[in-house]
């Protein structure tokens, strides 16, 4: 464990807390993409299936349960919560996710760390899917132009978590002799690159005060 990965996990937890606060606490799904929420639920349910046999560390075990639980809770409330459904904009949340899921599934089968292990294929699929899972959310924000304050912090924290993981992989590459994780490194780069435009607008709007809404052109 290193500080970058720890801060990354904390930022990820923060993004969940912000989203849960908005959706469950604030009873509003305005500006939130259900498609992104559902893809994240797929990402965690596939990647953390090793909960059944891998007890690498209690820390990992607890956070995996937390991430699966939180992402399923968010999907549940967005799909079945009365006031959440009323504030969710289905026609604007229209990114064709099948064009994201199918290629990731093919890539997961073709490019993974052990072609003899089905779990490795599923694991690689989840890494690739996570890299593009934020697209429907960014697409929705772009369409709406204005980003509500809490939503902007949620997206920022979610983007920051993987950016911190990039630092974690760099650190591990430099400090651990034969550590190399090309799959997560490349996917993490793509994932973080997708946030660059949002990060820029987030910084522009927040430097005038934390609770200004973010404007996307």
């Amino acid at each position: 464990m290193n500080i970058f990965r720890f801060l990354g996990d904390m930022s990820h937890i923060l993004s969940f807390l912000l989203l849960l606060h908005k959706i469950v606490g604030g009873k509003s799904a305005a500006g939130i993409s259900l498609r992104t929420a559902e893809m994240y639920a797929i990402v965690f349910c596939t990647r953390y299936i090793d909960l059944l046999w891998n007890f690498a560390s209690l820390y990992n075990y607890l956070l995996k349960l937390l991430f699966i639980g939180a992402s399923l809770t968010i999907v549940y409330f967005m799909r079945y919560g009365p006031s959440q459904k009323a504030t969710y904009n289905a026609d604007e949340d229209a990114f064709p996710v099948q064009y994201l899921i199918a290629p990731c599934a093919v890539l997961g089968v073709l490019i993974n760390q052990d072609h003899s292990s089905p779990f490795e294929m599923v694991w690689a699929f989840s890494i690739y899917l996570e890299a593009v899972a934020i697209l429907p959310q960014l697409f929705l924000l772009q369409k709406q132009g204005e980003v509500e304050n809490l939503t902007s912090h949620y997206v920022f924290a979610l983007g920051a978590y993987r950016a911190l993981y990039l630092l974690n992989w760099m650190f591990r590459f430099m400090t651990e002799p034969d550590y190399q994780q090309r799959i997560v490194w490349l996917s993490g780069l793509v994932q973080t690159a997708l946030y660059c435009d949002f990060f820029y607008h987030y910084y522009q709007s927040k430097k005038g005060g934390l609770n200004k809404s973010v404007k996307l052109p």
Binding site: R5, D9, H12, D50, N54, A56, S57, N60, L63, K64, F67, Q113, D114, W123, Y165, N168, D178, Q180, Q181, R182, V184
Partner: peptide, 10 residues
């Protein structure tokens, strides 16, 4: 072959 990466990260 690539070293089988133990999945010790989230």
């Amino acid at each position: 072959a690539m070293k089988r990466a133990l999945h010790d990260e989230l």
